[in-house]
């Protein structure tokens, strides 16, 4: 049941991720053209992509991270459209998608860690990418594990696991920036 969501998730989630990566890249170029440029997502001291975008972590592989997002999410959207059009891919295709989303989810968690504990600022567009990468990885994994017993168990509690996953990250963010959030209320 839960894995029927994969094609739609790939199109919608991948599309959102693509848009966020694209905007980040545009902002990055604007920042390079004019170092004084304040990106649209720099809202306050905590929510500030300007301070995140200039860090070494924003070019983890020697090039701007959004380039990875633009290419990766474009592939995800294409795969999703193919699946919706009736494409029944062979197993290797699914494993390829698994490899891509696994890389994405590991990279995203490294970025979350860096953002919270090294950079100490949050970049809203980046958080959009975090939010779509996790379910993309999760439901692709469930699809690929569907015929195994562990997979069936996880699939039965698919949204519970996902909700728990998000709650943990939100809690880490809340704790880390507590002093700041509490001044806003």
């Amino acid at each position: 049941m839960s894995t029927r969501i994969v094609p739609w998730l790939a199109v919608v989630g991948g599309g959102i991720g693509l848009l966020a990566s694209f905007v980040l890249m545009v902002e990055k170029v604007a920042l390079l053209e004019d170092p004084g440029y304040v990106p649209t997502c720099s809202i306050n001291p905590v929510l500030s992509c300007g301070s995140v975008m200039v860090t070494p972590q924003a070019e983890a592989f020697g090039m701007p991270n959004p380039l990875l997002g633009i290419t990766g999410f474009a592939v995800v959207v294409t795969a999703g459209v193919g699946l919706l059009a009736g494409f029944r891919p062979p197993r290797w295709f699914w494993l390829g998608l698994q490899a891509g989303t696994t890389f994405g989810v590991v990279f995203v968690h490294w970025l979350i860690w860096q953002s919270l504990y090294s950079i100490e600022a949050l970049c809203p567009y980046c958080m959009v990418v975090w939010a779509v990468t996790i379910p993309l990885f999760w439901y692709t994994t469930l699809h690929n594990l569907a015929r195994r017993p562990a997979g069936a168990l996880l699939a039965r509690y698919h949204s519970f696991v996902l909700a728990l996953w998000f709650v943990v990250i939100i809690a880490l963010i809340a704790v880390k920036f507590w002093d700041y959030w509490s001044t806003l209320v």
Binding site: H158, F160, V167, V185
Partner: peptide
């Protein structure tokens, strides 16, 4: 509803109550 749906709703509700509660009472 399935156990999954109940647990999901549970996690979300608990998270909202805890976060909101601490935020409001801490003010």
């Amino acid at each position: 509803p399935s156990a999954n749906v109940l647990l999901t709703i549970g996690v979300v509700v608990v998270a909202i109550v805890v976060l909101g509660g601490v935020l409001l009472t801490g003010k």
